[in-house]
Design a protein around this nucleic acid. Structure first.
Lengths: 236, 236
DNA sequence: AGAAGTTGCTGTACGATGTACAAATACTGT
DNA sequence: ACAGTATTTGTACATCGTACAGCAACTTCT
């Protein structure tokens, strides 16, 4: 959602656009991680004095928020528009697209967790989720809870991945994309944590996308399933 | 897990303990949020020069990590020890206890998201989860995935709550505990997002703990349920 | 007991950060 | 042309993490 340039202002022409700042911030975020996305760095990248940024954004927090909104605005809502698909698939398409967009910019993800996500695009995402859930037959109150649960899962999943991948991102640029998950668990003292250690090797085989959709399927099944989980033990 | 004091060292007596630093950091975190938990602030609180902290921790990141570990170490594992309880309840007890411990220190929660959680206590938590899941009949690989899903849900949930509550924490100290969730959604433009707006009022009624266990029940049901969610639409 | 060796705290200092303030500049409407 | 206003810049300040060197305290060895 690009801001329409208002012609015929009073002072000198603006040397920048808000979007230029956002793009600079995003590229800095990608190259050097969250630490590199400083106001001064951004300003240097677009070729202005550090303070010039404050003409477009009141805060650094505002810049961060705008970057996050920018990313959330990139998700392809149409991917979940087909009402003939089962609701679970529509949500899965949305969740996968969102994950793809976000994990392309891990630095931005770690920033996203700091502040609240109450921007227009975040709301639109929530709205789309609720549409699908209500379409599927859920009453709005339950749809609201379910959409919140889905949001928690999707963002929590991505955030945890980025956090586990850690600062290795900027140290080893070849691991820019999320691919080698559970790396932190590969050095588990086997004596103290036998189960975790035994699972670590197999966990390493599950690339993150698999685990992501596995968990998503679980959550979706839980939303569609019976309300009380106290019943039978899991099978398989 | 307090570090045992090693007697008879070479130099002058240590004026501090690592735990003193951790407690100071935690109290600063509680009072003034993440911004207040600076090395210099911590040092001032315990009455030493800023650099003295680096005798005990190599980094600020190490201090943060230790604080997180300290909090994770406080969860009461015994609460889920009773093997006669249904597995879902054992996990629920654990999840509720964890949530209580963490949401008592929102500032620490927002710090926790930045780095990976690969400390001993985090591992112990994962191990406990896997124990319960394996006890319930799940095969270890599935238990590993399920425990990861649960961890994602629990921490994502808490992190999102803290983030939505936002920096209001330190501005209005009476809202120290997490209680007024979804506050950010109370000002939704009703025209553009009808479903979200309609749900916002009812959402406000669901205090966070309710939503938390609701979602947890969903996740647990999904873990115990059939593997493929593509089937029937949700009922109720 | 004295000397030597080691350790911990402090003082000082540097670079970097976010951002407030005032001056300078470039444009528009009258 | 002039006045007014919006934007950028220069400078400045407080604060941050932390590196370096010195001093002081304590243990160990002779």
């Amino acid at each position: 959602m690009t801001t329409t340039a208002k012609t015929s202002r009073r002072g000198p022409r603006r040397a920048l656009t808000g979007d230029e700042i956002l793009e600079a911030a995003l590229s800095l975020l990608d190259e050097g991680g969250p630490a590199a996305a400083s106001i001064r760095g951004i300003a240097a990248k677009v070729g202005v004095a550090p303070n010039a940024v404050y003409t477009y954004f009141p805060d650094k927090a505002a810049v961060v928020q705008a970057v996050v909104e920018h990313l959330l605005g990139q998700v392809n809502h149409a991917i979940a528009a087909d009402e003939n698909l089962p609701w679970t698939q529509r949500i899965e398409h949305l969740a996968l697209d969102l994950r793809e967009r976000l994990s392309a910019h891990p630095g931005a993800v770690s920033l996203m967790i700091g502040g609240p996500m109450d921007g227009a695009n975040a709301l639109a995402l929530n709205e789309r989720l609720m549409e699908i859930l209500v379409d599927s037959g859920l009453h709005p109150p339950d749809a609201a809870r379910a959409s919140y649960l889905l949001i928690v899962y999707v963002f929590g999943s991505i955030a945890l991945e980025v956090a586990e991948l850690g600062e290795a991102r900027q140290a080893r640029p070849e691991a820019d994309r999320i691919s080698e998950r559970r790396a932190g668990f590969s050095a588990i003292p086997a004596g103290r944590y036998p189960l975790s250690a035994a699972a670590a090797s197999t966990m390493a085989a599950y690339v993150s996308t698999e685990q992501y959709v596995w968990g998503l399927h679980r959550v979706l099944a839980g939303i569609g399933g019976p309300p009380n989980p106290a019943g039978p033990p899991p099978h398989r």
